[in-house]
Design a protein around this nucleic acid. Structure first.
Length: 458
RNA sequence: GCCGCUUUCGUCUAGUGGCCCAGGACACAGCGUUCUCAACGCUGUAACACCGGUUCGACUCCGGUAAGCGGCACCA
């Protein structure tokens, strides 16, 4: 997204470029894909996986990836959703390669800014007799008795009889194109070579094919991705936690985890990449970088995968574990005001102790809270607590090593059960589950520890 | 209703006629480790929708049935 040039805004120039590409086999083979979100809401896992696949497909084939906002439904527009769509792309690290100049950077293409174009083509079609006016709208005439088919990159041959399709609106009476016209015109003008979109578009594809033919254009290749479904196998909806990617971001999920999770929903790496020997554990963790090398459209499944949060959680945990301590601390600070207020030395001690327990970044507060305030478990009997108190008082240097030495010695000398003694410490000082107790004590000051013991005695 | 898509463990999937009485992962259970909770290690439970063909041989090929889902808007 550095140098700004927009081959599409200027249609004429785009045409000549197109011609040149046809003559030049290198260029004509160049892959170009797009994503076409409509700003009517915030993308969820399903939409976003389509974005990911497009992006990977472009990168794998050293092609271009463009973003086009399909905002032709003026009623359903939702304030701020464009920004959120872009924020998701940014969060996941999926950058696009061209677009109109917006403050020296590439912006997405916006259909509402290209309204005239669609009207022009709709008029052309009307004049040529392929379309007609109907109550202020323009409909495409569907010729009966024809069969329309294409070789889907994922599903293989699919065909429809034109008899099941009625004349359909291509230009609405408000002057905006319907999806069908908009998508065909733009995909052609933007020289999109491969359309990767959700399965729900399969039945619309014949309409698009008709438009390509009426307009005298060559259609792109189509790949219809099975859509992610909820536990009840129907479309992902809010009810099933079809939360937006931004929600997951706020809950402390890492982009790496989200990407890894999404890519394995309906796609799998070639066996030789996943596993070297039979019976050996298969590789499941992939970075975006690796994916750009091994992704391929023919390994996309034909079935709709069910969204499963457990697996996402597992990925997140894994990626959290892989983060370096400074990186992890940095991210935790974005989620915990308490972490910001804690001094670095103590904070890294705490993070080291609780990191294996965290599923998401917001879990930090959950597991670290015991270092700031006591939990709610009841303390053990008074005698035991007093004994623990004496033991703690006898520690001179308050650090993990000294604590360990002194207390282990105390256990020996007083002939105590180690487990029982440690549990007493845990319950009277933290009143909750803790990481290994000596290390946990070392996080607190001696003063704070004794204060807590004192409180346990009351 | 019409049209289309789909069908391997609960879930994500591997598998392209014999390597599969089906492999891996998540989840679950048990065991180990252990001061609690985790983490970690090991083990285990669990699937080719159904019926016919083709074939010496079918998860893999063909046909049908069933079920699920999607589309059939001046929404995308």
């Amino acid at each position: 997204m550095k140098k700004v040039e927009d081959p599409v805004a200027d249609t004429e120039r785009s045409r000549s470029e197109h011609n040149r590409r046809i003559e030049d086999p290198e260029h004509s083979r160049k892959v170009r894909v797009r994503i076409a979100p409509s700003p009517t809401g915030v993308p969820h896992i399903g939409n976003t996986r389509t974005v990911l696949f497009n992006w990977l497909f472009a990168r794998k084939n050293k092609g271009k990836f463009v973003v086009r906002i399909e905002d032709t439904d003026r009623q359903r527009l939702q304030e701020g959703s464009l920004e959120k769509i872009l924020e998701i792309l940014d969060f996941l690290g999926l950058s696009w390669d061209e677009g109109p100049n917006v403050g020296g950077d590439f912006g997405p293409y916006i259909q509402s800014e290209r309204k005239d174009l669609y009207q022009k083509y709709a008029k052309d079609l009307t004049q040529k007799g392929f379309a007609y006016e109907d109550e202020g709208a323009i409909r495409l005439k569907v010729e009966k008795g024809k069969s329309w088919s294409w070789n889907d990159l994922i599903h293989g041959e699919i065909s429809f009889k034109s008899d099941v399709i009625e004349d359909f609106v291509i230009l609405k009476s408000d002057g905006f194109p319907t999806y069908h016209l908009g998508v065909v015109v733009d995909d052609h003008l933007m020289e999109i070579t491969d359309v990767l979109r959700g399965d729900e578009w399969i039945s619309s594809t014949p309409k698009h094919l008709m438009l390509y033919e009426a307009l005298g254009w060559q259609p792109p290749k189509f790949a219809h991705l099975p859509v992610i479904v909820g536990p009840d196998k129907s479309k992902l909806s809010k009810r099933h936690g079809a939360k937006s990617i931004l929600d997951y971001k706020e809950e402390g999920y890492l982009p790496q985890a989200l990407i890894n999770f999404m890519v394995l929903l309906g796609w799998s790496p070639p066996p030789e990449v996943a596993r070297r020997n039979i019976g050996e554990k298969e590789k499941e963790l992939f970075t975006l970088e690796e994916l750009t090398k091994i992704f391929s459209i023919d390994r996309v499944n034909t079935t709709s995968p069910v969204f499963n949060i457990e697996k996402l959680n597992w990925f997140n945990k894994k990626y959290l574990q892989m983060l370096s301590l400074p990186d992890l601390i940095g991210k935790i600070k974005d989620f915990s005001s308490r972490a910001i207020r804690t001094d670095d030395r103590q904070l890294s001690q705490i993070v080291n102790l609780v990191r294996d327990r965290m599923t998401t970044l917001t879990d930090f507060d959950k597991y670290a809270s015991i270092f700031f305030e006591k939990g709610s478990e009841k303390p053990p009997g008074k005698e035991k607590v007093e004994n623990a108190q004496k033991a703690l008082q006898s520690i001179t240097n308050w650090n993990e090593k000294a604590i360990t030495q002194t207390l282990d010695k105390w256990i020996q000398e007083n002939n105590l059960s180690a487990g029982d003694f440690k549990n007493t410490l845990r319950l009277s000082v933290f009143a909750d589950n803790t990481p290994p107790i000596y290390q946990s004590l070392a996080v607190l000051s001696k003063e704070e520890t004794l204060k807590r013991i004192e409180a346990a005695l009351k």
